[in-house]
Nucleic acid binder design. Structure first.
Lengths: 222, 222
DNA sequence: GTCTATATTCGGATAGAC
DNA sequence: GTCTATCCGAATATAGAC
């Protein structure tokens, strides 16, 4: 019954949504410029000009994927940067939330993070959003160092380590097999182990992270 | 005097080498398919058809960059996977060596690691080399867990964390400013802090890592 | 070793029928 | 909402002069 339901759900996906999903996989595999509108159309099962009924340009497809992957993450990071309580717990919560969102997404978002294109003028607004996200994460790390929860470490370096782990997770997911459900917490554990001044607080911090409330919701597909 | 020397050195770079350097930057910024041979030629300061005097195809340029970034790293990782002594120290040494190589390289090797293209048939041999590299690193990690030096952690996850950090370092370097000279050891420290069962052994392990001898040499440019 | 000129294929996007 | 047919610019690569 649940299989039948799943199939029904699959079949009710709109063409527009299928374009987004197939595009994300092609962009991830061959880059934005390496994926032609003909490739996308073929993957979706329509002819090339039919794409332009759903999106005005190829750019618009990519922009929608960018917006999906960045807007909500940035909102969550900025919320957590301003929230109270343990900064370490807030970083932990961000990692768990963001990984889960990326893991469960039907899109393969590698091309956004590897960002062949993010520097281009056409996509500049999202370069800005990506910056906001980075600044918010760096801010949480700075707070954790100031509070003595993290070791003395260069903030930009720690922030980059976070990005590196995220990117690698997205990449792995797109290589095929499903990632285990514990992956988000495991990744957050890993990160915190490297950063905490007192490793034995990890359990306590994870518990506090779970209790944080009021986060902005992530967008659904469809 | 040393500045004059440096300038002389700069000016003695061959056209072929300049093609490799400019290509690597373009590939990193806009992807392999997003960078035309016209773009490359313009960056080098010659006309587009002149490229084909130095490389038979555009593919061949990318393949040379692939070979540069993967062959020696894989050789070093495989040597260290078979070497004796502390596995943790061997992983540490690999991280330091590989980061230094990537940091000091005149090429921007992001496009190789983000690998839009590595899955393509045309570049299949280097997909294999990348696999060899990953297997060797995973093997060192496995040895360290078995020896009780590392916490019980999923090997593939730890290996991915290594890749993520590497990628992020390459990316950062290419965004502009020079990275500090301590970056390789700092990165290795970070990684080991997350992995070690007993964090206090870090100093001792770094010292043993420095003492490892007989590593295959990395290639020079020109 | 670099140039001009050009062959040829493939890219994004539009017009208009159904 | 999808199709066929088509425009037009840009892509890789070659030929042959200097």
């Amino acid at each position: 019954m649940s299989v039948a339901k799943a199939l029904t759900t699959e079949e009710s996906i709109t063409t527009r949504e299928r374009i987004l999903r197939e595009s994300s996989h092609l962009f991830a595999a061959r880059g934005y410029y390496g994926s032609s509108t003909r490739d996308i159309a073929k993957a979706v099962g329509i002819r090339q000009p039919s794409l332009f009924h759903h999106f005005p340009t190829k750019q618009a497809i990519f922009q929608e994927l960018l917006s999906y992957s960045l807007d909500d993450s940035a909102a969550v990071a900025e919320y957590l940067a301003r929230a109270g309580g343990s900064p370490a717990a807030r970083l932990y919560r961000f990692l768990v939330e963001d990984f889960r969102y990326l893991m469960d997404s039907p899109y393969d978002l590698r091309s956004i993070f590897t960002s062949d294109v993010l520097l281009d003028d056409e996509f500049e607004p999202w370069g800005q959003t990506a910056d906001d996200l980075y600044v918010a994460v760096a801010d949480i790390i700075r707070q954790a160092i100031a509070a003595g929860e993290f070791i003395e470490i260069e903030v930009s370096f720690a922030r980059q380590a976070v990005s590196g782990l995220m990117l690698e997770t997205i990449r792995e997911r797109s290589l095929g097999e499903e990632l285990p459900a514990q992956r988000p917490t495991r990744t957050a554990d890993f990160m915190l182990r490297a950063l905490l001044a007192d490793r034995s607080r990890l359990g306590e911090i994870a518990a506090e992270a779970c209790a944080i409330e009021g986060l902005p919701a992530y967008r659904d597909t469809e």
